[in-house]
Amino acid sequence: MPETTDWSSETYDFDRAALRAKLRDVPQEPGSAKPQPILTVDNVVRRFGGMTAVEVEHLEVQRGAITALIGPNGAGKTTFFNLITGFDRPSSAKSRFGGGQGPFATWRFQGESLGATSAFRVARTGMVRTFQLTKALSAMTVMDNMLLGAKDQPGEHMLAALARPLWRKREAEIREKATDLLARFKLDTKAKDYAGSLSGGQRKLLEMARALMSDPAMIMLDEPMAGVNPALTQSLLGHIQDLRDQGTSVLFVEHDMHMVRHISDWVVVMAEGRIVAEGPPEHVMQHQAVVDAYLGSHHDQDLGDDSVLDEDFAAAVADEDAERAEEKA
């Protein structure tokens, strides 16, 4: 298939209502085609011993959307994440020595094929991830963490590193950018602190901010809410929506549906390694496959009851629902 998609920012759906309108016409079934898929995944299978952890035949992720990848614990979400970001290798990957049986795993990001690409190359194509257990570099300062996220720093080459004039200018640029980002994430006062001294929520924010240093086309968040003080989840959700509004597509993993419901534009549900349902958040929860998937593993979990949320969050959710209603109107 020839690549004709225009990936410039002019074609990005900054208008969320327009984006949602587009998604409304997308069929609500596993593997459905999206109008502007930024990421297309085919035949990604991962087996551990006899167990199949992930078996995704086809998935498209809409550009400009906040797509949530949800599913009960053990559904294979994080494994799937690791596979497409190059941190793990699909069992269905084309063997290095040829041979093996197809169909082989392939996936494309912004038109670039990523079939057997190492993690750092995936990140360089503009698909940057964060981790479920935050990987803030604790023995480095917050600022150094940020600077490490930048790209095109000539001083990262060993020989150029010796001569400061070769990288001083770029260093000043990225430092400025880091300062801005830290201010946006309200971490500016912490710039000189060791990342190890931050709270769990602040580390999540730092990790997100650090990922943004390279201006990724898509950011992939692995359980961004895990281990975060509930009082901070609200601001974290706000930051995720800001990311989208400023031109970064978002794919994030979460096992708690309530978090997902109010910020995502599209929801993909995984269970036992497969994608069992897709759809907009307000509809996908009603799919029989989703109910089965969750009931199968969490008999006691209530799917749509907002009373499980704490009051602050419930209020935030109510506000957002109202906002969204206004948008639609």
């Binding site: 990140a123 990987k135 480095m140 150094d144 490490l148 080459h157 400061r164």
Partner: peptide
């Protein structure tokens, strides 16, 4: 230098550095 920064990052958590596009 930035090279040294990347090296120190690797010492601490190489997956984190990998996820930021460093070889």
């Amino acid at each position: 230098s930035p090279w040294g920064r990347a090296i120190k990052g690797i010492r601490e958590d190489e997956d984190a550095v990998r996820s930021l596009g460093k070889n």
